[in-house]
């Protein structure tokens, strides 16, 4: 309680500035961990967009210390309610825990847009959110399937593959795993193991090294993000199997782009982090000006292959 009061006071101190701009809607974005390279890109993208559209709305954003920092997100939303902002776009760190706060914000007449990770449908209904509550975000499952499918097309029939998972329980980790599993099943690949490396390079390196010992016959790797791809590629190099094992990832971060240029990574799924929050803000502004948006506004995902990268003009 004390923290909330303190938060309210702090926000109140900043209030005089935003009140003056009352005619322009105030848009607040609640993001995930800014310590994550991908979210840093999301943040830069949306800040640039807000700067370009200064005349249309005022803007602020908050990020988290780490991926599972649910409390900070709840506190941020409470703060924004107190502050009476007009639009909140939120990328929930947890698909259930944020629902009550979102409900409170809506009751206070604030337009809320759910982006990146979809709120749990059942829980959302139970807690009284509209049945077809708007979600703006990428189709992680489709993206992972695309990457996995492309891997399969580049491997012989019944090839042996492993999946490197993200954090157990994280929504996008689950969806990406589902997409990869679908690619495995549709292409009759032989899945040797599916293990987590918690999104982390070092852990993925250790995991992959040990998997290679247990299954020397691995031919393909599907990784739930690109940070883990970095560790996987090093493990393959250390085992002297560069070129024998094909790797696909997700996020398309800069270091992996380099590896794709060198032919060490087959493909990665780009889902345009720069535009992710921007799309959510755009949707929020539409609703604010009276449009009725529901359902799933899919943001693009695109498979980028090493060939694409190699064909690109040198910068």
């Amino acid at each position: 309680m004390k923290i909330k009061v303190l938060g309210a006071i702090l926000i109140a101190l900043g209030l005089p500035f935003s009140v003056q701009a009352a005619e322009k809607p105030h848009v607040c974005v609640v993001m995930k961990s800014l310590a994550n390279e991908f979210w840093r890109t999301v943040e830069i993208g949306v800040r640039d967009y807000a700067k370009e559209n200064q005349d249309k709305f005022t803007f602020e954003a908050v990020g988290l210390k780490n991926e599972s920092d649910i409390d900070t997100q709840i506190n941020a939303i409470e703060g924004y309610i107190t502050k009476q902002c007009d639009v909140i776009a939120v990328a929930p760190a947890n698909s259930v825990a944020l629902i009550p706060s979102i409900k409170r914000a809506m009751n206070a007449g604030i337009v809320v847009v759910n982006f990146d990770v979809r709120l749990d449908k059942k829980a959302a209904q139970q807690m009284g959110l509209p049945e077809d509550f708007l979600f703006v975000g990428p189709d992680n499952k489709l993206g992972a399937f695309e990457a996995g499918d492309y891997l399969a097309k580049n491997l012989p029939k019944n090839a042996n593959v492993v999946i490197i998972e993200g954090n157990p329980g994280a929504e996008n980790a689950i969806e990406r795993k589902e997409g990869y599993i679908k690619a495995v099943n549709d292409n009759n690949l032989n899945l040797l193991a599916s293990r987590t490396a918690h999104w982390e390079t070092e852990e993925a390196n250790t995991l992959m090294t040990n998997l290679l010992t247990r299954y020397p016959n691995i031919q393909g790797v599907m990784s739930a993000n690109d940070s883990m791809v970095l560790g996987v590629v090093k493990a393959i190099e250390a085992a002297g199997k560069t070129g024998e094992i094909k790797v696909v990832g997700f996020d398309f971060i800069a270091p992996v782009k380099q590896l794709m240029k060198d032919g060490k990574v087959l493909a990665s799924e780009d889902f345009f982090g720069k535009d992710l929050a921007v799309n959510a803000v755009k949707a929020g502004m539409k609703i604010y000006s009276g449009e009725n948006l529901t359902g799933w506004v899919k943001t693009p995902v695109r498979l980028v292959t090493s060939k694409d990268v190699q064909n690109e003009m040198p910068e």
């Binding site: 310590a35 994550n36 390279e37 780490n66 982390e200 390079t201 070092e202 390196n205 940070s227 970095l230 560790g231 090093k234 270091p255």
Partner: peptide, 15 residues
Amino acid sequence: MYMLRLNIANPILGV
């Protein structure tokens, strides 16, 4: 040693 092993440096490593 970490950089020698993985050839990258990342500010979220070592959690």
